[in-house]
Amino acid sequence: MKASPEIQERLKFLSRVVNKEIKHLKYAANQVFGGSLTYEAVKALDATPDLAMKVEAFTSRFCRLQDTLGDKLLPALLKALGEPDRALLINLEKAEKYVWLESSEHWIALRQLRNQMIHEYIENAQTLFDALTTAHDNMDILEQFAAKLDKQALELVSAEE
């Protein structure tokens, strides 16, 4: 199936965006975790606005990259391959079948970190600390998924040109 020029341009654009988002996420992660983030530091975020801004940047960039991958690049790539529009969970299961993603369940679990990093931290520093460290420890899942989607998208676009 030949992807339309619009879909090809969309894939190229999203690949560029994802690569920039990964770069920015790595920078933010280095700012937050470079000195080894501790629970005590998270507990004292109200008193350390500089660290709070860095944590906010990391959280935002982690969530944004996950959104771009799961809600934009993956559906665009599946569409280019002739797959019908589906809900996120079905798309993630397709990604598993294409061997782009190891586990859709793990992806969903990582996606649930969003609420813990954005909302629940207001009440519970331990929840925020755990969510931040889990997100940091799993950044490679997002990067690997991005690399596989990017490779597939670029192969598809170059085959069409």
Rank of each mutant, 00 (worst) to 15 (best):
D130F: 03
I108M: 12
S103I: 02
I118Y: 04
Q116T: 03
A109M: 07
E105V: 05
E120P: 07
Q112E: 14
N124C: 06
I108S: 09
I108Y: 10
M117K: 00
I108K: 14
L110A: 08
E102T: 15
L113H: 09
Q126A: 14
Q116S: 13
Q126D: 14
S104A: 09
E120T: 11
L101S: 08
A109E: 11
S104L: 02
A131E: 00
L110G: 06
E123R: 10
M117Y: 02
M117T: 06
H119Y: 11
F129S: 07
Q116C: 12
W107G: 04
W107Y: 15
I118T: 12
N124L: 02
Y121E: 02
Q112S: 14
E123T: 09
F129K: 10
T133E: 04
Q126L: 15
R111S: 10
D130Y: 00
N115T: 15
Q126M: 10
A125N: 08
L101Q: 01
L128C: 09
E120A: 15
S103E: 02
R111M: 04
Q112Y: 04
L101W: 00
E105R: 03
L128R: 04
L132K: 14
Q126S: 04
L128S: 12
A109N: 10
H119T: 11
S103W: 00
L113E: 12
I108L: 15
H119E: 14
I118N: 08
S104R: 01
N115D: 15
I108T: 15
S104F: 00
M117R: 03
L110N: 08
A109V: 08
L110M: 12
F129I: 02
A109R: 07
E123Q: 14
R114K: 15
R114E: 08
D130L: 05
E123P: 12
E120K: 09
E102G: 12
N115R: 15
I122R: 11
H106N: 13
R114G: 13
E102L: 09
H119D: 08
H106G: 04
L132Q: 12
N115G: 15
I108Q: 14
A125L: 06
W107V: 04
A131I: 00
A131C: 09
R111H: 13
S103D: 03
S103T: 02
H106R: 10
A109S: 13
I118L: 13
Q116R: 11
I122H: 10
F129Y: 11
W107E: 02
W107D: 05
S103M: 05
E102A: 13
E123D: 15
E123W: 06
Q126H: 12
Y121D: 00
T133W: 02
L113T: 10
T127N: 01
M117C: 11
E102W: 13
L110T: 06
L110E: 05
A131Q: 03
T127E: 01
